[in-house]
């Protein structure tokens, strides 16, 4: 299962969906303002949209997650049994 999250890290939308994803053992890909969370989250298994990072001046060395581009995101979506989002 893959959760897509686009909300900023300080929002309820982010907290609720991230908690639900973790509770369900799902993969997560951060998009849009949610990529800011990748600078603080301890989780190294999270996917982060590199395009949205670049737009916001976040470099790959600043984050813990795994940067992905849109082609890789499509592969993740096709490979997942279910895609939930975008939150």
């Amino acid at each position: 299962m893959l959760f897509l999250i686009s909300s900023a890290p300080d929002t309820k939308e982010f907290r609720t969906s991230y908690r639900l994803a973790m509770d369900m053992g799902a993969d997560v890909c951060l998009l849009q303002d949610a990529v800011y969370a990748s600078r603080d989250l301890k989780n190294e298994n999270i996917y982060v949209m590199v395009d949205d990072m670049k737009l916001r001046g976040i470099s790959e060395s600043e984050i813990r997650g795994r940067p992905v581009d849109y082609d890789q995101l499509i592969d993740l979506m096709v490979g997942a049994d279910k895609v939930i989002g975008i939150f």
Binding site: S6, D33, D51, L73, I74, I86
Partner: peptide, 13 residues
């Protein structure tokens, strides 16, 4: 930003 995200995802798909 959803329009942009949707366009990029659609393009790659």
């Amino acid at each position: 930003e959803n329009t942009y995200t949707a366009m990029r995802i659609a393009e790659a798909a």
